[in-house]
Every structure is written in structure tokens, then in C-alpha cells.
Design a protein around this nucleic acid. Structure first.
Lengths: 234, 234
DNA sequence: AGCTTAAGCTATAGGTAGTAGCTGAAACTG
DNA sequence: CAGTTTCAGCTACTACCTATAGCTTAAGCT
């Protein structure tokens, strides 16, 4: 039974993966910026300098995790949209899938979306999937517009900025005010399901022209709605 | 010329203030979690242990800054609303004033709204103004509702959560994607001025009842508008 | 079987937060 | 004004961290 050709490489990869896993644990306990390689080494049963055989520096560990996170998040938002044909439903599902992934990977999310580690800057390779995420949502919004569910302006630069801000809001609030809570039980995550309606209200798909300009159109405003039940219901 | 009674206390307060100021500088350069008391000591011209005569620990420095920040932010949102009588305009002005304060105090804002420092938890005293901020906005929204500019649901728990998420979105995006940029030149801060219109769209002031429930009310949606100019404009 | 490579180690440098205890001067007090 | 207290600064030290240098040993390739 000849072993797999490069047994060494496999072992090495396994150890690297173990390091990253333990690093995530430590970050969950001590805070993202509180990662200590010495603690990781202690837990996997080696002396601290041995870790440098697998990663050239602490920041390299962060970078590997950053990359893992970007790829996981990209995968999540893609899978979320997959079951649907292009349209508002696909966009909503993708947003929710992303939010769920974030709540299940809160430590990685902090690393991705905030910049909590002094001295660490993502390498271009690790950052690459972030661009893909942006393109993914741009494509989704374009699909929504083409289907006539949103005004074309939604696919413009400002529209995409607004979209990213709309999703960043509940996520950010949830992570900082109720960390450790699941998606279902979050006071802010529940708002994610209302984003499609809000988007529709901001960029209504009117043949009659672009959205109105008056910021305080009293009697005319309507359309966006709480996700379920009456106002202020659970 | 008898000196001011407690000359020592004044000196001491001055030194404490100097420490906090330099600490802010260091945090701006090295990252919020990258504050090093040794660096601060070097800059103000003393040896590191001397700082412990003024603050019992590094976290105490963070806590003093946290408190300063909370008070500054509370002051900003209050002043922002002051010139207006209760209503949507006051709410909008308060949101914008808060956003401006944040962009002018980005380091403090990170300390306040994210939790970037492992091991530091705000003391109850320092956290107190945060509650006041929440009450401030609750009161403002109540005023808007009483003036008939928003549906009463906006003043409910979920409405206030939505409001805080709506403002947290652009702020969070701005801080993490374009830090160091002024309020005026921010790609995301410009969205802040559109929040009142978005709120109006989500909680339209209808006598006919609570906002509609259907999340994808296609033809019916309208009302929320870009702050100025056409869609996707500057 | 022998050679190569890599994974672990110890020792060390240089950085940090924080404590203990000393000293000298500034500021209160009789 | 003199004595006393208080406090701001210091040095020395502990314990921890990241990271490097260089050695040893064993696993794995040829």
C-alpha cells in the first residue's frame, strides 16, 4: 500500500488547517485582534516557534483566515441566489444567505468587514473575492432591474452603495450589539428580510420616470413594509 | 499671588488630558487596538511606568476615551436637532450631525460602535451616555410621529432598531471602506441625507392603517427619493 | 540503505503591560 | 518658616508576546 505520493505535503496542509481552526477558536474567545500564536501553539501541543514553519508571521495567519472568509462569504451569497431566477427574490435570498453566513462566522466577518487588527492589511490575493462579491450583487441588481422590479438607477453606482449600506446596517448593529446571537434570534438580523421592500420603495419600478425628489412627500409615500405582521410586531 | 487652591489637581488633570490626546494620535496611526502606553509615554517625555500614576491600566485609558466619545456624540446629535422643532427635519438634522461628528472623530467612533479592543469592556459609567443617545432618538421619532410625518410604528421597538440600522449602514461602510475621508467627500456618508425619505417610505403616515405587509408590492411602491437630483446623481 | 528535507526543539533579541519600591521636590500645615 | 505629607517621576523586575537563528532528529523520498 504505497502512501499518497506527497504524504508530507498532506500532513503539512493538515497542520496548517489545524492552526487556522485553533486560531479561530482563540479569536472567538479573546477577540479578533487578541489572537496569540503562543496560545495556538500551546493548544496544538508545540512550542511557539514551531508555528513559523507553517506561517511566516502572525499576519500571514490572519491573511489565510481572511481569504477563507472571503471565499466562504462569496460562496454563501452565490448559493443563496442560485435557486432563484434573476429578480428581487434572488437578491433578497442572496442578502439573507450572506447575513446568515456572517452570523455563523462572526469572527471571520469582523476580520472581513471591520479592520480590527493593527498592522494587518489583506494581501491582494486574499482580497480578490471581495471584488467578486461586489460583482455578484451588481449582476443581481441588474437582473432585478431588467425584470422591471426596480428602477434602473438601483444598478448605478449610488444604488449599489445604498444596497451595501442597507445590508451593512443590520449586520453591523447585530455584530456589535448582540454578538453571539443566532440569525433567528437577532434583534437586527430580522430586519434583513425587509430590505427588498425598502429597496423597492427607494427605487420604485415606474415607467413614469425616476423616483420623486421631494424628501418629505407626506401623503404619497407608501410601499415598503415590515416583513411580517403589523407594525412593531415581534 | 496665591495659586489656584488645588494646583496639583489641575496639573494632574492637564497631564491626564495630554495622555488622552496623545493616545488618540497613536490610535489614529496604529489602529484603535494598537495603542501602546509605551509609545504614549515616549511622546510625552516620561518613562512608561509613570503613566500608571494617571491611569490604573491601559483599559482605563480606553474607558476614559470611550466616555469622552459617548459624551461628544451625544452632544453632537442633540445640537443637531436643537435648531428645529420636533419633526422629520429635526430627526434628519440630528442623524447628519451625528454622522459628521463620527467622520471627524473616526478613532473614537470605532471605539464606540465596534469593539476592536480585546479585553476592554466599557464601564457602566462610560456607557451611560449611549442610553441617552437612544432616548434622544426615541424622543425625536416620537415627535415625528406626533407631527404626523411617520406612522406610529416607527416609534416602536422595531422601528427604532430599523432607524439605528439605517444610520449604522452608511457609517459602517464609510469607516471601513473609505476611512480618513471627510463627510463631504464620502461615498457612503452622502446617503445619510436620504434617510428621512427612506424612513417615510417604510413608515408612511397613513390614516388608512399600518403600512402594507407584502414585501414585494410591485406597482404600489413609491415615495422614497434620492436626496437631491435624479437617480444615481452625484 | 542512504540522502534530503522538514518538523520540532532551545536560546535569544526586543517589544509590550503592569508592579514594587525608591527618591526628590512640590505643596500643604502648624 | 520649618516640618510633614503627598505625589510624580524613576529604576528594576516579572511575565508575556512576536520573531529569528541554529541545532537535532526523524520522516520520507530515491
Amino acid at each position: 500500500m504505497t502512501d499518497i505520493p506527497d504524504r508530507r505535503a498532506r500532513r503539512r496542509a493538515e497542520t496548517q488547517a489545524e492552526i487556522l481552526g485553533v486560531a479561530l477558536d482563540v479569536m472567538a474567545e479573546e477577540g479578533v485582534a487578541g489572537l496569540s500564536l503562543a496560545t495556538v501553539a500551546r493548544r496544538i501541543g508545540v512550542k511557539p516557534p514551531s508555528l513559523y514553519k507553517y506561517f511566516p508571521s502572525r499576519n500571514a495567519v490572519y491573511d489565510a483566515l481572511f481569504r477563507q472568509g472571503q471565499e466562504g462569504y462569496l460562496d454563501a451569497v452565490r448559493r443563496g441566489a442560485e435557486p432563484y431566477e434573476p429578480g428581487l427574490a434572488a437578491l433578497g435570498a442572496s442578502l439573507e444567505a450572506g447575513a446568515r453566513w456572517i452570523m455563523e462566522h462572526q469572527v471571520l466577518a469582523q476580520l472581513l468587514f471591520w479592520r480590527p487588527v493593527p498592522g494587518y492589511v489583506p494581501s491582494p490575493e486574499s482580497y480578490a473575492p471581495a471584488t467578486a462579491v461586489h460583482e455578484h450583487f451588481a449582476r443581481l441588481v441588474k437582473g432585478v432591474v431588467e425584470r422591471g422590479e426596480l428602477h434602473p438607477a438601483a444598478a448605478g453606482e449610488e444604488g449599489l452603495d445604498l444596497l451595501s449600506s442597507l445590508i451593512a446596517g443590520p449586520i453591523s448593529q447585530q455584530l456589535s450589539n448582540q454578538p453571539g446571537v443566532t440569525y433567528e434570534r437577532g434583534r437586527f438580523t430580522r430586519l434583513v428580510s425587509r430590505l427588498p421592500a425598502i429597496l423597492t420603495a427607494v427605487y420604485p419600478p415606474r415607467r413614469t420616470g425616476p423616483p420623486a425628489t421631494a424628501p418629505r412627500a407626506e401623503g404619497e409615500a407608501r410601499g415598503a413594509a415590515p416583513g411580517s405582521g403589523g407594525p412593531a410586531s415581534g
